[in-house]
Nucleic acid binder design. Structure first.
Length: 615
DNA sequence: CTAGGGTTAG
């Protein structure tokens, strides 16, 4: 409110005197008006743009038109930008179309193009660019920056490379902003190599270049490289990280599932006053949660005074992946009590929490009330959550019925959820039908093949297992190799299944043997149904004992300082038998284990797990 | 008229 008042005062202060001068000597005032007022208008417009004030902006526009300055070279592009940033690209386009093409210059075309990109209508931006190029107008560095963003938004890798060569041709190859836009575009395609090549050749680099390069590494899962860049920028090139740098870096810190790295970034945020920035905080909350420390995440959450929907969603997601499902629902209620409405992503998080927590009735109630209560039309993702919820709870028939009654066509993710449930509940015939449907729908999604092959294996149909595996090979798909890792003293130790490559392998297997004896005494019976290989029972039992997660656990027990929880991460789902075994190990050695799966955490303590064996 | 940012089912 204050802002609009300031603007209107300024408008009056600037405009009223010029109105008065209008009635005096016309010639003198005209000159005066154009010289002084157009730049003053420019400042005012800028202020409307910054505060996204459409109302004041329209008033200003009227004043500008009356002053005969609408088509001023500086003001016209600014007017376009005003409408675009206020969410009215249509007004901007109308204004743009009122001027004959031949009278438009590159700057104006580019303003309109950027406006489309900024409003998420990148396709229109490209169409306009083609028109502009066809008229023989040369794009400038601003045009290229906007176009690169458009090509990134539309996932057009080829277009980005074409633009890159055009950029070089037009002589903008060493420009800072264009370079930054190129890094961003390449990183959005996961093409870190091109981004890195460009970055290393840039004559000038600023905070945006560094942050974008860090972001590129993080997105491509080059986590160690992100961190290296972070220290390099500070200690070798003396560039000061800002909040955006931290947000680009933070996801890298949770990968190894050890807290140290993320904590140091948090400390940096506190030292530099970034710890009340909501975006930094939601990244911190996600980082702590993904390191298996929801309490630390909650501390960050709790000291915020004003919380937006994304921060709430991050916190609820954090509790959810750490198995605190009741807490998720309590927070969800609290959030609504405070007058905040969930968005579509919040509801996915909530439904997924209900699914993983086995809170089926509650979940169904929330799903059914989505539209009426929150005004959100359920998308395929929400439907997939419900299918997962019913399927996980063993209600396969209900899940099938639910899919049949869907008002929108079921996508791969909806059917995939049900296929996953078929694996858990060993339903071969339904699994087969779904898998065949899915192979047509998404032929290159390897997880569907893996699940079907696991379903066959679980009932001993080894010929069919082989058939699915050959089908995968034919399509060039592979099953990811399982491994687990543990970080100790800044070093990551990775283990594969039955791995003997670690220098301390002998001690690890010795420890495993001890542990096996202890848990057998405590009542452990190996469950060979989790071995999806065609081998003898005894071999299966032996294979179970040296799964990668157990090797990492044994190593952790040998090496980690006493009394701290042992944190393990795995790139696949924890095997069900290992899950049983780790529960018992946590009891017999009186130790907490925090194991991260592909999708969630298992907090093992005193013989039980936070997931309640339902996952 | 330019560049980079947080939450998303299996």
């Amino acid at each position: 409110m204050e802002v609009t008042m300031v603007i209107s005062q300024t408008v009056n202060a600037v405009f009223v005197p010029s109105l008065r001068t209008k009635r005096q000597s016309p010639k003198a005032s005209l000159r005066k008006q154009q010289k002084v007022t157009s730049s003053e208008f420019c400042v005012l417009l800028q202020s409307c743009i910054e505060h996204r004030s459409l109302k004041k902006g329209r008033e200003l526009h009227t004043l500008i038109r009356e002053a005969g300055l609408e088509r001023n070279r500086d003001l016209f592009p600014k007017l376009l930008k005003l409408y675009c940033t206020c969410g009215r690209v249509d007004y901007a386009r109308e204004l743009f179309d009122r001027i004959p093409e031949r009278n438009l210059d590159t700057i104006t075309w580019t303003a309109m193009i950027s406006g489309y990109v900024g409003s998420g209508a990148s396709n229109h931006a490209l169409t306009l660019f083609v028109e502009m190029f066809g008229l023989g107008l040369e794009p400038d560095s601003y045009s290229f920056s906007a176009l690169l963003k458009a090509s990134a938004d539309l996932s057009l890798h080829r277009l980005s490379t074409c633009l890159h060569s055009l950029i070089v041709k037009f002589g903008y190859g060493s420009g800072l902003s264009v370079g930054n836009a190129l890094i961003h575009a390449y990183s959005s395609f996961g093409d870190v190599c091109s981004a890195q090549k460009l970055f290393s050749r840039m004559p000038d680099r600023d905070i945006v270049s560094w942050s974008s390069m860090i972001q590129a590494c993080t997105l491509a899962k080059f986590f160690a490289e992100s961190r290296t860049l972070f220290s390099k920028m500070q200690f070798e090139e003396h560039v000061k990280p800002n909040e955006i740098t931290l947000v680009s870096l933070l996801p890298s810190c949770s990968f190894f599932s050890s807290l140290g790295k993320g904590q140091s970034v948090h400390a940096y945020a506190i030292r530099h006053g970034f710890d009340s920035n909501l975006i930094v905080c939601s990244a911190l909350i996600a980082m702590y949660s993904r390191c298996g420390d929801p309490e630390a995440a909650f501390k960050v959450f709790n000291r915020l005074k004003k919380i937006n929907i994304i921060v709430w969603t991050s916190m609820m997601e954090g509790f959810s992946i750490n198995g605190r499902f009741q807490l998720v629902l309590e927070l969800f209620k609290l959030m609504q009590d405070q007058g905040l409405k969930p968005n579509s992503i919040t509801l996915i998080v909530i439904l997924s929490a209900c699914s993983h927590g086995g809170l089926i009735d509650e979940g169904m109630r929330i799903f059914e009330g989505m539209q009426e209560k929150f005004g959100i039309v359920p998308s395929t993702e929400h439907h997939a959550c419900v299918v997962d919820m019913l399927g996980r709870g063993g209600r396969l028939k209900d899940a099938q019925f639910f899919i049949e009654k869907m008002k929108i066509p079921p996508t791969g993710c909806v059917l995939g959820s049900l296929l996953g449930a078929c694996q858990v509940h060993r339903n071969v015939s339904l699994g087969e039908r779904l898998a065949n449907q899915l192979f047509r729908l998404e032929p290159y999604n390897e997880s569907n093949y893996v699940i079907l092959s696991n379903i066959y294996a679980s009932v001993g149909r080894w010929d069919d297992v082989g058939r699915v595996r050959r089908l995968m090979a034919l399509k060039g798909l592979t099953k990811p190799i399982g491994c687990s890792w543990i970080e100790l003293k800044d070093k990551v130790h990775v283990f594969g299944a039955h791995d003997r490559s670690h220098p301390e392998s002998q001690r690890i297997y010795g420890k495993l043997e001890d542990l096996s004896q202890m848990i057998v005494k405590a009542g452990y019976v190996p469950s060979t149904k989790y071995i999806f290989l065609d081998v003898e029972e005894d071999d299966k039992k032996r294979l179970l004992c040296s799964h990668s997660e157990r090797l990492a656990i044994a190593f952790g027990l040998l090496k980690a300082p006493p009394n701290v929880p042992i944190r393990i991460a795995k790139n696949l789902r924890v095997c069900g038998d290992c899950h049983d075994a780790i529960k018992l190990i946590s009891k017999v050695v009186a130790r907490r284990f925090i194991v991260r799966d592909t999708s969630r955490f298992h907090h093992f303590s005193q013989g039980s797990c936070s997931c309640g064996d339902y996952w």
